[in-house]
């Protein structure tokens, strides 16, 4: 049977990234981004956004690929039972991961540009 490990990795990565996004948004300070005012992370906590950036989309994509490869390789075994649902769920998680990644990217870009201004 297909391994649920990639799915678990993806779920955990998305959940952690979402948690980081919420934490950064709640604790962020208002900052002008393009034409918006957004609660951007404190400069000293840039690593949180970096972790979020790694979790989504990179780790989720890793899980997506791992699931795909494992399921594909598993088909060599006649007794293998594929789980298309895993692939579909991970596919959606990749999409959600990219959306979350935008938030982390905005935070990281703001911190970088702020350092640029104040340096």
């Amino acid at each position: 049977m297909a391994s649920p490990i990639p799915l678990l990795i993806g779920v955990v990565a998305v959940a952690l990234s979402l948690a980081i996004a919420v934490v950064t948004a709640v604790n962020g300070r208002a900052s002008s981004v393009w034409f918006l005012t957004l609660p951007i992370i404190e400069p000293g906590q840039w690593w949180l956004s970096l972790v979020g950036y790694i979790l989504t989309p990179l780790v989720v994509i890793f899980a997506f690929g791992l699931n795909r490869i494992w399921q594909r390789d598993g088909l060599r075994d006649r007794a293998f039972t594929p789980k298309p649902g895993y692939s579909l769920a991970l596919k959606w998680m990749v999409g959600a991961g990219f959306l979350l990644a935008l938030w982390h990217i905005v935070n990281l870009a703001t911190v970088v540009s702020e350092q640029w201004v104040n340096s």
């Binding site: 300070r29 002008s32 970088v112």
Partner: peptide
């Protein structure tokens, strides 16, 4: 809390 628009956009594009 001003940001350097060019630096922001460049960083964002690079990260994306």
């Amino acid at each position: 809390r001003p940001v350097n628009a060019a630096a922001f956009n460049l960083t964002a594009v690079i990260l994306i």
